[in-house]
Every structure is written in structure tokens, then in C-alpha cells.
Design a protein around this nucleic acid. Sequence first.
DNA 1: AACCTGTGCAACCGCCGACCA
DNA 2: ATGGTCGGCGGTTGCACAGGT
Length: 316
Amino acid sequence: MRSPCCDDHNIKKGPWTPEEDQKLIDYINRNGHVNWKSIPKQAGLNRCGKSCRLRWTNYLRSDIKRGHFTEDEERIIIKLHSVLGNKWSRIASHLPGRTDNEIKNFWNTQIRKKLLQMGIDPNTHKPRTDLNHLLNLSQLLSTAQFANPMSIISPWQNNNVQLAQIQLLQNLLQLMNSSTTLLSSGPQNPNLVNLIASSISKPHEGLFNNPLSVPPQAISNESEFNIGAYFEGGFGLNNPETHNKSLGSASLDVKTETIIPALVEASPVQNKSSSTPTSLLSAAVSPADNDFFEDLERFLDDGDGTSDPYWKEILE
DNA sequence: AACCTGTGCAACCGCCGACCA
DNA sequence: ATGGTCGGCGGTTGCACAGGT
């Protein structure tokens, strides 16, 4: 049975004082750190060895680089995380001056949030498929498009609405793909899938540096679209060919976080003849609704011209 | 001005593996 | 081979602070 390191109730815990820091620095500068357990006693500190080691490695070391992470560091962290997972110490070993604790905190408080807002699962580095996210996106879009039709949308706002639109389309594709798998009946409407797929594959360079480009392997020819290959790349995170492009600073720009407006309550589901994206999604994600493709196609078809044409704009 | 809430980050906790006697 | 010790790691907590109401 091992003895706990810090089981002495007289051992001090909590934040370190400047005096304690100085004692530890002086001692290690003089003697180095061979045996952490013996250091507190020899340095005159009422702390456990573990606490001393942590304080030294995460804060007092002279080679610690403090302050904001650069975009390069952020890119490296995301890239390494996509390969290594939560191996913070291994990630830290590639970032001189950064500690595992610092990187872990940075990931949990900043990067994680950014990825989630971009519709990327921070654990898998692939597009999110949870229904709440799809609904959020659709709410965002309907808010941006319909909340105030008279308002003038600035170019960068418009760009981000389009970013959200593409995210939503991608998630729809994935949902459709999984739906066809679940239904075990093969693609129910390959033409529809191809229609959406081809709309995503259209170039958007100049809008937002094409951060969500389609890997070439996803489109084998004009009439076929390989959804599996498309999403396998996880926005290129696992694909060396697309990695740099998809992880470019544009895709993680702080603007992405700030431009997405706060979500508002979803508008009530309207009748089919005046379907909004919200109502479409409500229909599309309903577990009991097996007519998803039919509804989607009907919505896109918009024969009576009463529904909003923006879906057509996206797809066209 | 007081209170509430969200955020960032330092520090702790518990587990695990390496090492050694 | 076994058990004890220690360092390292990842998850989690709790505090300080800022901003909002």
C-alpha cells in the first residue's frame, strides 16, 4: 500500500506566495531537483513534493513562455490533438515553453468552444451530427435571414451566414447518409444527395478562403458523390492533403466566434407551403418521420413560390 | 453599490507506469 | 517476482476576476 504524498494535514495547500516561490527557486537553482519528495524539507517549505514539482514545472521554470498562444501554436495544438487526443504532455513537448497544464486549459477554455461553434466535434475533429447542433444552425440561419428583412447585412456578416449555411448542408448530408444506412434501403434519393453535394463542392473562394473545401476523393465523377470519403477527412484534419487548407487561420479566426449571433428561440413550425429552414429541420430530424427526403425535396422544389428562395440560392 | 454569472487558470487529486531493492 | 516509492499525467475543482443586471 503506497503512502499518499500529501496526507499530512499540516501541509499547506492552495496558492503559492511570492516568498514560497522564491524559496523554491533559490533551492532548485542551487541544487537542482533530484528528489522532489525531499525538496520541501530541504528548501524550508511546508508543501508536499508533488506541489513543489507542479509549481516549478508549470510556473517557476525560467523557460516558461507565458501569454497568449499564437495562431501557429493554436494550429499545432489542434493538429496534434487530432492525432494524439488528450495527451497534453506529448503535445506540450512540441511547443517549447508551453506546459501541458497551460495547453490543457487553453484547449478546454478556447479551442474547444471554437470548434463546437464551427460545428466540429472537438473529440473526433469531425462534423457534429447531433440534432441540437443542426437545430441551432437552422435557427441561426432563420434569424439572420428572416428576423429583420429590412436590415442591411454587412459583407462579413453575410459571409458567416453562408458559413453557417454550408455547415448546415454538410450536417444534413451526414444525417442523410446515416439515415440511409439506418434504413438499410440504400440511398433513397441519390439525385438529391448529389444535388446538395455538388452545391457544396462549388467554389467559395473569396468568401471565406474556402475553409470547408471538399476533398477531391469525395467526388469521383460528376454523377457520384462519395459522402463517406467526404466526411472521412473531418475537415481535412486527418487528411494531410487538405489539412493545411482546412486548418488555416481563416477557419479558426476569432471572427468566426464573434460573428455568429446569439441564438434565439426557434420560430414556430409553419405549414408546409411556407416552410422555413427551421420547419424543414424540425421535419427532417423527426425520428418518426420517414418522409425526410420527400419533404426536403418538396421544400427545395418550391413549386408554388411561396417559400423562401434562400435554400435554392445556397444550392444553386 | 450589490449581487449574479461566466470565464480563465492555478492547483489539487487520483491513477498509472517506471524504477529499484 | 513482488512490493514500495516516486514522478508524471489527465481530469477536475475552486478561486479570483470581469462584465452584466
